[in-house]
Design a binder for these strands. Structure first.
Length: 564
RNA sequence: CGGGGCGUAGCGCAGCUUGGUAGCGCACCUGCCUUGGGAGCAGGGAGUCGGAGGUUCAAAUCCUCUCGCCCCGACCA
């Protein structure tokens, strides 16, 4: 490729609307341009990288026995009503009508379509298992798109779906994908970790997220410092040791204290001079249209997903202030799990065994001190319902403590079970002729996000440092002065030979000064730069520079060719 | 959806307070010169000042509405 005939609009300055480094560099290196919020064009350089990642994914998926297909991005409402997600999916689902007024959506994922295909054409246990995947444009109307292609609304995703005769076989399919994903991200040059995750809107009962370690990541993951436990914050469990069960403190007398206008834990604990560790805060959640009371230790944050799961609920939202006032007949801020009938009370395990704590008295301007479980307060059950934080005990091992890191979710695999095969009636006939539900799994990779994550992890002050397997070109040949015929001819001779050897190479044949070419070569992150210039004119040496660490070697023409 | 910020040439920005008819750097075009880390000189092209309405003799500037983009939040009472 000749640079002068290609299209790489690089920028000297950072774009004003980019925040994270990968976004800035992708714009500056001429890889992408924004069309509108969360919607991007891939320019030639960006597209080459995207295709590199796609091909790695394709190779590993095929190697793992998956089969590529291509499904439509526009999908009819009827399919989504069958699965129940037309109403469940919410505003993220982009919906529209055709000229006849029929409803459609732009696919954010493809469980419905692929299940429809399989139920229509797979009838026998002999045809299973099967794993179908595609690489395709998706649309999710994100609340707040940001960070360029890292969290965009339109994006390219590899989504795959496995279909098995039973749980055991499904687990094997899942494991194959787990292994394939590890290979894919290794080949992309990423430092990643597979962590346990919640299943979210996709649904199902078991999943792993593939997280790329990066400080700018939007997700927090918790890792054990002793064992291999790791999970994202939504899912991360807290070890039982968080409880205060072993204190030998005697029970004090319950007292009601006037706490005028003291509503927050901060206000109350300051006013009463009590650590938030010895307070309980009370929240009301609406879970599947039923109010639930949730109590947490004053220092802990509730985790809605865990709370929801603790009561096997589907939908959860905090009660509004108005609802609380109607329900308990008191202003918010003084609630407590005291004398509440008809409300299920769930307590976080951090509270288990806590003695003589402060809690709302269910009376305006009053809190209790020295409240104790059983004697004063009844809870229905204790559960792990708060967010794990740094220093929390590990849920898996005896000794370990959790610590947190930021990550970017580049892949997510789920065991779906029969969630979709049941609602959409996808069955096969077993060897006894019985109709049995197909057991499914689904597997996604954000392709563009993987590119962004790779840049997030591989850059320096001069620009992108592409890992070789996903670099848009392996070599860039820089003739320092294109008007010098000796330099020019040598450079082009090299270019022809390297191209013939089957390598991807771009030659910077622009009539620019050397500095400009060096800067651009660094910015766009080509792994090796071959410079033909002064050293060649002087003593026939060609410079071979590795982008990663700028190490430089001097070769004769023949040596360069042999080296490549 | 709530709060904040910003929309002026392809990109990055100044001008707006105090209204007087648009400017800087980069990029682009022409010429000269230069050729190892984003050179220099001279000349040049390019902007409905996001949009609509209003105030005024006069609006990028003041007022109203609107659209877009970015950031923070959207849950712990």
């Amino acid at each position: 490729m000749r640079y002068s005939r290609y299209f790489i609009p690089t920028l000297k300055e950072d774009p004003s609307d980019a925040e994270v480094i990968s976004h800035k560099l992708m714009i500056r290196a001429g890889m992408i341009r924004k069309l509108t919020s969360g919607i991007y064009t891939y320019l030639p350089l960006g597209l080459r990288v995207l295709k590199k990642v796609e091909n790695i994914i394709r190779e590993e998926m095929n190697r793992a026995g998956a089969i590529e297909i291509l499904m439509p991005s526009v999908q009819p409402k009827e399919l989504w009503e069958e699965s129940g997600r037309w109403s469940f999916y919410g505003k993220e689902l982009l919906r529209f009508k055709d000229r006849l007024g029929r409803d459609y959506c732009y696919g954010p994922t493809h469980e419905e379509v692929v299940t429809d295909i399989v139920r229509n054409h797979i009838k026998s246990y002999r045809e299973l298992p099967i794993n179908l995947y595609q690489i395709q444009t998706k649309f999710r109307d994100e609340i707040r798109p940001r960070f360029g292609v890292m969290r965009s609304r339109e994006f390219i995703m590899k989504d795959g779906y496995s279909f098995d005769i039973d749980e055991k076989s499904a687990e094997e399919s899942y494991h194959k994908m787990y292994v394939a994903y590890c290979k894919i991200f290794e080949r992309c040059g990423l430092d990643f970790r597979a962590v346990e995750a919640d299943t979210g809107a996709i649904g199902g009962n078991f999943s792993h997220e593939f997280m790329v370690m990066a400080d700018t990541g939007e997700d927090t993951i918790l890792l054990c410092d002793k064992c291999s436990y790791s999970a994202n914050r939504e899912k991360a469990q807290v070890g039982e040791k968080i409880s205060s069960i072993n204190t030998e403190e005697p029970l004090e007398r319950l007292e009601k204290i006037n706490t005028p206008d003291m509503k927050s834990i901060e206000e109350v604990s300051n006013y009463l001079k009590v650590s938030p560790l010895k307070t309980a805060k009370t929240l009301i959640y609406m879970i599947d249209s039923v109010f639930h009371m949730v109590i947490l230790r004053g220092d802990r944050e509730g985790n809605e997903i865990k709370i929801k799961n603790a009561v096997n609920g589907n939908e959860i939202r905090p009660a509004t202030e108005e609802e609380i006032e109607n329900l308990l007949k008191l202003p918010v801020g003084f609630m407590g799990p005291y004398n509440v009938s008809g409300l299920k009370v769930i307590a976080d395990i951090s509270l288990k065994g806590l003695k003589n704590f402060v809690t709302g008295a269910n009376e305006k301007d009053y809190h209790f001190i020295n409240a104790n479980f059983d004697r004063d307060i009844k809870v229905d059950f204790f559960a792990d319902i708060s967010n794990a934080v740094d220093g929390d005990p590990c849920p898996r091992c005896e000794e370990g403590k959790l610590y947190s890191k930021k990550g970017i979710e580049v892949g997510h695999i789920f065991k779906l079970g029969t969630k979709y095969s049941k609602s959409m009636n996808a069955t096969y006939l077993n060897e006894k002729g019985e109709e049995v539900l197909i057991v499914m799994g689904c597997y996604g990779i954000g392709v563009g996000r993987t590119v962004a994550a790779a840049i997030e992890q591989n850059h320096d002050k001069d620009g992108i440092v592409f890992p070789e397997p996903i670099a848009p070109f392996k070599y860039i040949i820089v003739p320092t002065n294109i008007n010098d015929s000796e330099i020019k001819e040598t450079a082009f001779k090299l270019y022809d030979i390297i191209t013939q050897k089957g390598h991807e190479v771009i030659i910077d044949d622009r009539d620019e000064r050397p500095g400009v070419k060096f800067k651009d070569a660094d910015l766009i992150g080509i792994p090796y730069r071959i410079t033909v210039g002064n050293t060649y004119k002087k003593d026939g040496k060609i410079e071979y520079v590795r982008r990663k660490d700028k190490t430089s070697l001097l070769y004769t023409f023949e040596e360069v060719i042999n080296h490549i």
